[in-house]
Design a protein around this nucleic acid. Sequence first.
DNA 1: CTTAAATATTTCAAGCTTGAAATCTTGATG
DNA 2: CATCAAGATTTCAAGCTTGAAATATTTAAG
Lengths: 160, 160
Amino acid sequence: MIPKPNQATQPLSKKRLRLWLKLLKASSLIEDEIRRRFRNDHDWTLPRFDVMSALSRAPDGLKMGEISKLLRVSGGNVTGIVDKLTEEDLALRVAVPGDRRAQLVRLTAKGCNMFAAHSTAHEAWIDEILGKLDENDIKDMMARLDRMNETLNDEKKNAN
Amino acid sequence: MIPKPNQATQPLSKKRLRLWLKLLKASSLIEDEIRRRFRNDHDWTLPRFDVMSALSRAPDGLKMGEISKLLRVSGGNVTGIVDKLTEEDLALRVAVPGDRRAQLVRLTAKGCNMFAAHSTAHEAWIDEILGKLDENDIKDMMARLDRMNETLNDEKKNAN
DNA sequence: CTTAAATATTTCAAGCTTGAAATCTTGATG
DNA sequence: CATCAAGATTTCAAGCTTGAAATATTTAAG
């Protein structure tokens, strides 16, 4: 007989692992669903939405490196996505007066309109998907997620 | 004066959106850190680890389609990863007696050993990263994540 | 001014991922 | 048996992502 693992008495490390797997599953399911809806309902992609979302909060534009930091993705990645947005006339690159290395990226009017529509749909999707969580659930999870992130922030600091 | 947004009185949909963004951030940070450690410490990748992990729990092997369902990734994706594992003699494809369409994938002895080492390291990393969460935090978050997933499961059922 | 280090961005190869089309096999129906 | 839908897998093009190398520019030091 193989002994049936009793989860209640598992070592803490195993419980943390199970939590991580569940957290990852939840966030993957949601992210995939959002991707799918962007693709099917708007013929659009999540990475492009994310870049436009960052730009929408910066009317004066963002430098490539700023987008990269905000979204925590590589510089090369941003180059590719902004290229696509620019080709479709949704964003444009403008020179930075004092620095010929850098460029500011800004949404065009067309880009602003498109983002407004996508953004409204996106918020509604999330509201639907997280519909079973009330104010209390949200407050609680936020606090615990913050506590999780602390560890990673600590590590980043100590990695000097 | 632009009114400062008071998060406490935001509509519930906005709060849900903020929670989603925080959840996504947390899980992305952790996943990226795990990827980085696999890459730097073991010259390995997370997708390959995931496939080996599924295989390790099935001594008799898994069909390609079963791996695909377990990991919730496309069939074509699994083909590519299993090809890589096979090339490195970590897994092998064996014929299914009654069905010439399908194949069973199994870890080799070499694959088992490699996975055991990676798996131990992986659990320790997660234990470290989630180190600030105790039994209570874990139980609580598990319950709420389950409740979130219900919505997506419901939708999948209704999507018949 | 010259040089060297630091910054900002792009290019590129390699890997992951997907959805759709293609191939081959099985099973059910007549 | 013949046909045809369903199933398992592979192939493929397109897109995202990364880290490292390459370019170009700025800044700091001497």
